[in-house]
Structure formats: C-alpha cells, structure tokens
C-alpha cells in the first residue's frame, strides 16, 4: 500500500451514482483489454450535472490537459458515493483517470466492494462534511497509515475513519492477492 497520497482535490456532492461516474453508453468497452481500460478514464464523471462538477463553484472540467487522465488525483464527496448499479467500470473509470483515493462520508455497498476487491482506489470515509470544507483544486495529502488528511492549501487537517476490516485487502492489493495471502486461494 502507498504510504502517502498527494494530489489536487476534485469536489462533488451527495449521491454521486455510477451513471454519473461512467454513463451506461460507455460500458461497451471491455475493461479486461488495456486499450479499452484507458477509455474509461476519458469518460469518467462525464454525466455529473455541470453545476455539481467541481464544487463549490461547479462547472469545473475534470480533464483539461490530457484526454484520458484528469488534472485531479483525489475525489472529495458527500454521502452515498457510488450508489446505483454494480458496474465495476465506475471505480475503473476513476482509476483510469488517475484518481488515487476517494474521501466520502460513506459509500454505496457494491461500489465500496469493487474499489477494494479490485484494488483500484482507496475508499476513505470521513466523519466530517469535507465536501463543504475543501475546494476543488486544493492540494491535499493523505497519510494512509495514520489516516490523516491535510489540506496543504489551507493548512487544515482532519482524521479520517480507520479502514478497518478492509485494510488487509487494500494492503494486499485486492481480493485475489488477499485470498492467496490467507490461504483461501491456491493458484
């Protein structure tokens, strides 16, 4: 597991569902093919209503410099991030766009599982309503071990919730690596 994650914040609101994260029309790409995996990065967050995209101001583009990779590395969001469908293409899209972790109040169950078990992004939870305290573009640092989030731009810092029971899976890099480690899987 990475010990420190640094990057610029892209801030979203509550109930960002998987259709907003990756619209259904792009699910025709097969994530098992590397050239197609990259395409999910291009269309990541493309159905977020413009007024909600990049809070607090909104109307902030997720990509400007590179067609496939975002200008931002950390998503900060409110409640129930990743609700809706079971499509693993959602955490894949964020991973392909260069997102390292998401910090939200809590997650929809399947999105959380997919993020952890596929080893795409770390889904941190926070007790604070950070989507109203952090601005899109702020420079953030997350100390993974201690669960400390620092806003380098404003010099504020917060304690994130412990990763708890999924920490060993995240640490291993996903469900397959974890299952091998604990002797569940012998291939």
């Amino acid at each position: 597991m990475q010990t420190t994650i640094t990057g610029r914040a892209y801030v979203l609101g509550d109930n960002v569902d998987t259709d907003q994260i990756i619209p259904a029309q792009y699910l025709t790409y097969n994530p098992a093919i590397p050239a197609e995996y990259k395409m999910f990065g291009k269309y990541a967050l493309s159905s977020v209503p413009p007024a909600q995209a990049g809070l607090p101001k909104g109307h902030v583009l997720f990509h400007t410099k590179d067609e496939f990779v975002s200008d931002y590395q950390i998503i900060v969001a409110g409640k129930n991030f990743g609700c809706g469908s079971s499509r693993e293409h959602a955490p894949i899209a964020l991973d392909a766009a260069g997102i390292k972790c998401v910090i939200a109040e809590f997650y929809a169950r399947i999105f959380f599982r997919n993020s952890v078990n596929g080893g795409y992004i770390i889904p941190f939870e926070t007790a604070d309503r950070l989507c109203e305290q952090i601005c899109t573009g702020d420079e953030l640092t997350v100390d993974v071990e201690s669960g400390t989030l620092t806003n380098v731009t404003t010099k504020e810092s917060w304690k994130l919730k412990p990763l708890g029971e999924v920490a060993p899976i995240i640490d291993a890099g996903g469900i397959f690596a974890y299952a091998k480690k604990v002797g569940m899987l012998k291939v």
Binding site: P31, S85, S86, R87, E88, I110, R113, N114, N117, G118, E165, G174, I175, F176, A179, M184, L185, V187
Partner: peptide
C-alpha cells in the same frame, strides 16, 4: 445480491465469496 467483475471472477473460479 449484486457484485462487480472482480468478485464475480473470483466466484467463477472458487465458488466462494467474502461477505459481510
């Protein structure tokens, strides 16, 4: 219940899944 591709790939090979 609904699951993602990674979990489904795991079930396909092992017939098992980690559930809370």
């Amino acid at each position: 219940t609904g699951i993602g591709n990674t979990d489904a790939g795991f079930v396909m090979g092992t017939g098992k899944l980690w559930v809370k």
